[in-house]
């Protein structure tokens, strides 16, 4: 049965709203930016539905849209992402940026993930923060499963080094 775009959007938010926020949070390392990227992801999805795009599987479509939104943000000139902040000497271990809703360990993990360079960062975020299987990650990113598995392994190695585990 063909569902209306309104229904598709509301159901997608109900099922994947937190997951998309989690992904954006792991990608940006900042809660407010994560909320903006989440809103941007759903807004872009709505525009696609309005334009008549047929979305067979909303999950990979939303993740791809959120990923593209985060990449676009990072490419913007003057974007004060963690990477840009790091380049000007900002220390990501600054306690003033701690998320009060997360434990100390979780805050530390989020910051360490944000420090991992691409393409390993998103592979780790999707695998362990969003709990997706390598096959699903491969569909979202557009790479083979083997490539994704390698990226996950290497990303976790870098994370352990950063967290000194």
């Amino acid at each position: 049965m063909v569902r209306s775009p309104e229904r598709q959007l509301t159901e997608a938010y109900r099922e994947l709203g937190d997951a998309i926020f989690r992904f954006c949070y792991a990608h940006t390392g900042d809660r407010d930016r994560a909320l903006d990227m989440t809103q941007e992801a759903f807004t872009r999805t709505w525009r696609a539905l309005l334009s008549g795009t047929t979305v067979r599987d909303m999950k990979p479509f939303l993740y791809r849209t959120a990923r593209n939104a985060c990449i676009d943000l990072s490419r913007k000139p003057g974007a004060d992402s963690l990477e840009a902040l790091r380049e000007i000497g900002f220390d990501v271990r600054d306690d003033s940026l701690l998320d009060p809703l997360l434990s100390a360990e979780a805050n530390r993990a989020i910051r360490c993930i944000a420090r991992i360079e691409e393409p390993y960062r998103e592979a780790v975020a999707l695998r362990y923060v969003n709990d997706l299987m390598p096959r699903e990650i491969a569909e979202i990113i557009g790479e083979s499963e083997n490539v994704i598995s390698v990226r996950i392994t290497r990303g976790m190695q870098k994370l352990r080094e950063l967290m000194q585990i």
């Binding site: 997360l102 993990a109 976790m156 585990i165």
Partner: peptide, 21 residues
């Protein structure tokens, strides 16, 4: 590492953020 990873997987929008979104 599994422990903090699991904690990350439980990240949610709080009530105010849910309301806004």
């Amino acid at each position: 590492s599994e422990q903090f990873i699991h904690e990350l997987s439980r990240i949610r929008m709080n009530d105010a953020e849910q309301e806004r979104m």
